[in-house]
Design a protein around this nucleic acid. Structure first.
Lengths: 162, 162
DNA sequence: CTAATCTGGTTTCTTTAAGCAACCTTATTC
DNA sequence: GAATAAGGTTGCTTAAAGAAACCAGATTAG
């Protein structure tokens, strides 16, 4: 596939996508959030090829999104658990899920009803907010002068956001 | 590459990833949010192969994330603009960017400083919140009984989130 | 104590998509 | 009227994804 890797990229979205931006990685993280920890469980739940799962798990461990924990007394049993960095993907995964539920609802499936353990109430839509917690759209924001967005283009088109 | 497509999947994250979950699509959307609209501009900014860009743009248009607008008086000039569905990816893109800035900061680049047009103040971290706007981590939430997460596995491991 | 099974892989082979470069068509500019 | 720009398309090469078989160490079943 010759996929270009952007480790060097000046864009942090590109760098983020480099770690979790492929097909499976985010699904692995999602399932890890749902409690899955074992190789075989990921494999069965996701229906992913074993070699690809190996690769993704190894990469996620390399990138410190997951950590591999030896479990079961004599070795040879492992668990993959989210690190803080991995848990920090929570808003992204939830936002994706909400977006999917909103724009591509499954006819047979209710949208995710995720609830706060404390109150039992349904969580909010994930949104971009100003300092006071008011929602912002892409048209409500700007990048201050002097910020650059990416690379090798004239600066004019970059100041605008929205 | 034989990438499995999950249009049929019961998981809305998988369905979302099906539309914007590959390497380039989200970067295209990101640049669209930054104001890019023309084929050549996407191509140069992203450094993407032209045929792949064609494919991604067409797919994004098919999925109604972008719309192709005839511009320039006599046809043969087009712009790709975000639809509402596309603009709705804003929290995801911003969350990704913030995650990247936090966990893989570029030494040479300041983290994204995105500001509210109204007040000029820096936006908040994107987070999952309860009904009152208090932040929630993956450990603070649960899926009520009866919800299923994905497929073909016993239900026990699914109730847990975190 | 040997055989079957479970877990967590690795290897091999095939298919398919990504990357690159060249080419093409329809304006518009010089 | 030739050169350039925009927006593609085509063909080739390379590399990653998928499927399935194999493997080794630990555990359990008989």
């Amino acid at each position: 596939m010759a996929r270009k890797r952007f480790d060097d990229s000046s864009c942090s979205v590109a760098r983020a996508l480099n770690e979790v931006g492929d097909w499976w990685s985010l699904l692995v993280v999602l399932h890890a959030m749902y409690g899955t920890r074992r190789f075989v469980d990921f494999q069965q739940e996701l229906g992913i090829a074993r070699n690809i799962l190996c690769d993704r798990l190894a990469r996620l461990v390399d990138n410190e999104v997951l950590k591999k924990v030896e479990v079961g007394e004599h070795g040879s049993r492992f668990e993959y658990r989210l690190t803080e960095k991995g848990r920090d993907l929570f808003p992204i995964v939830i936002a994706l899920r909400q977006w999917g539920d909103k724009w591509n609802p499954a006819p047979d499936q209710a949208p995710l009803d995720l609830r706060d353990r404390e109150t039992g109430q349904t969580i909010r839509q994930v949104e971009v907010q100003d300092v006071n917690g008011n929602p912002l759209t892409v048209r409500d924001v700007f990048v201050p002068e002097g910020e650059t967005v990416d690379k090798r283009k004239s600066a004019e088109s970059r100041k605008k956001v929205g």
